[in-house]
Amino acid sequence: MTFVGKQIRMERILNRKTRRTVLVPMDHGISVGPIDGLQDMKTAINSVAAGGANAVVVHKGLVMEGHRGDGPDIGLIIHLSASTSLSPFPNAKTLICTMEEAIKLGADAVSIHVNLGDGLEKDMLRDFGEISYQARTWGMPLLAMIYPRGEKIVDEYDVKYVKHAARLGHEMGADIVKVPYTGTPDSFYEVTSGCAVPVVIAGGAKMDSDRDILEMVKGSVEAGGAGVSIGRNVFQHASPGKIVRAISSIVHDDATVEQALELL
């Protein structure tokens, strides 16, 4: 029954035909406060839902406030770990929500964040292992956000680190792995070819142009990526719904960058 439950939930966040997804993380409030684009959560979620996003990632306290407000239906991923920019250890994520809470709130999936190379990596891996076990037990899809960030990491976009991060997520039992984009399709293929579960890319810092965003998305898909999990470059966009629609056209319809730009 848990296998059937996981299948049903996965269909809420992963397109059955393309096996790809467009996720919009909106979990930034705990880390950095109510930044631009996330002051009004109902409006923010409605706009990306209207654009065709598959799911949003939020913390537990925002589920009743904003999820599936007045707009189209959209998948719900509840984020289980967090840290703040005010901490002396901002990269050390700790669990702040339980699997039981997520299930009671109606989650279609849960997510956890691990920073490899951080001094407290061992604690984050221990938490990851426990959540992975619980996710398997309850048939709950697990999105693992794995970033190479720590004292030993020279460049978090270096393919040798990113492919290690993706493989770790796979071997720890994640159903979808989120990692940084390595910059080129050739280098990102090294990441996807070493990870047998869907790999989505993070959006990173706010980009200067729509073309930059869409070229990154296209490059990742060409390399075997399963879509995106893009936050600031979506919810801080002048037209969040339109940029989601453009991204979705590449992820789900294999549109070119030029075709996607026309949607803007």
Score class of each variant (00 low, 15 high):
residue 153 I to S: 04
residue 80 L to K: 05
residue 256 T to E: 06
residue 147 Y to S: 08
residue 75 G to F: 03
residue 242 K to Y: 15
residue 71 G to H: 07
residue 67 H to L: 14
residue 220 S to I: 00
residue 186 D to A: 12
residue 142 L to E: 03
residue 78 I to F: 06
residue 243 I to E: 01
residue 162 V to A: 01
residue 163 K to L: 10
residue 242 K to T: 07
residue 74 I to T: 11
residue 75 G to I: 04
residue 172 M to E: 09
residue 208 D to P: 13
residue 85 S to H: 13
residue 43 T to M: 13
residue 57 V to D: 01
residue 207 M to K: 03
residue 148 P to A: 08
residue 3 F to P: 11
residue 240 P to V: 05
residue 110 V to Y: 02
residue 63 V to A: 06
residue 256 T to Y: 06
residue 162 V to Y: 07
residue 72 P to V: 03
residue 178 K to T: 05
residue 64 M to H: 15
residue 39 Q to S: 14
residue 158 D to V: 14
residue 176 I to G: 00
residue 62 L to M: 10
residue 82 A to N: 03
residue 153 I to P: 05
residue 244 V to D: 02
residue 66 G to P: 04
residue 26 M to T: 14
residue 15 N to H: 05
residue 263 L to Y: 08
residue 48 V to C: 04
residue 259 Q to I: 01
residue 156 E to R: 14
residue 237 H to Y: 04
residue 166 A to Y: 06
residue 174 A to V: 12
residue 12 R to C: 02
residue 135 A to D: 09
residue 142 L to H: 09
residue 72 P to Y: 08
residue 205 A to S: 15
residue 215 E to K: 11
residue 137 T to I: 11
residue 254 D to L: 08
residue 183 G to A: 14
residue 53 A to T: 13
residue 103 I to S: 04
residue 241 G to S: 11
residue 167 R to A: 04
residue 188 F to C: 05
residue 49 A to M: 06
residue 19 R to F: 05
residue 52 G to T: 00
residue 148 P to Q: 12
residue 178 K to D: 11
residue 165 A to N: 02
residue 116 L to I: 08
residue 43 T to H: 07
residue 82 A to M: 07
residue 16 R to H: 09
residue 64 M to C: 08
residue 101 E to I: 06
residue 255 A to H: 01
residue 152 K to A: 14
residue 24 V to D: 01
residue 59 H to V: 07
residue 166 A to V: 11
residue 252 H to I: 00
residue 164 H to V: 04
residue 154 V to A: 13
residue 106 G to N: 15
residue 51 G to W: 00
residue 78 I to E: 02
residue 145 M to Y: 11
residue 112 I to M: 14
residue 106 G to K: 12
residue 48 V to E: 01
residue 204 G to P: 02
residue 38 L to D: 01
residue 13 I to W: 01
residue 87 S to I: 05
residue 95 L to G: 09
residue 15 N to V: 02
residue 229 S to V: 10
residue 107 A to S: 15
residue 106 G to E: 11
residue 150 G to A: 13
residue 34 P to L: 06
residue 176 I to K: 02
residue 197 V to C: 03
residue 205 A to V: 14
residue 183 G to H: 01
residue 171 E to C: 15
residue 223 A to W: 01
residue 187 S to I: 01
residue 163 K to C: 06
residue 218 K to Q: 03
residue 109 A to G: 13
residue 32 V to L: 15
residue 191 V to D: 00
residue 192 T to W: 04
residue 125 L to Y: 00
residue 23 L to K: 08
residue 147 Y to F: 11
residue 128 F to D: 03
residue 164 H to Q: 10
residue 89 F to H: 12
residue 217 V to L: 00
residue 140 M to L: 15
residue 247 I to R: 04
residue 220 S to Y: 03
residue 63 V to L: 10
residue 200 V to K: 02
residue 127 D to G: 14
residue 42 K to Q: 14
residue 102 A to K: 05
residue 240 P to E: 06
residue 249 S to R: 02
residue 168 L to G: 02
residue 180 P to V: 08
residue 44 A to D: 10
residue 90 P to K: 09
residue 225 G to M: 01
residue 85 S to D: 12
residue 24 V to N: 04
residue 159 V to W: 05
residue 167 R to D: 07
residue 97 C to E: 04
residue 62 L to G: 05
residue 214 L to Y: 01
residue 238 A to V: 10
residue 166 A to P: 09
residue 201 I to C: 06
residue 223 A to D: 03
residue 188 F to D: 00
residue 236 Q to D: 12
residue 79 H to E: 03
residue 124 M to P: 00
residue 222 E to I: 11
residue 49 A to R: 08
residue 198 P to M: 03
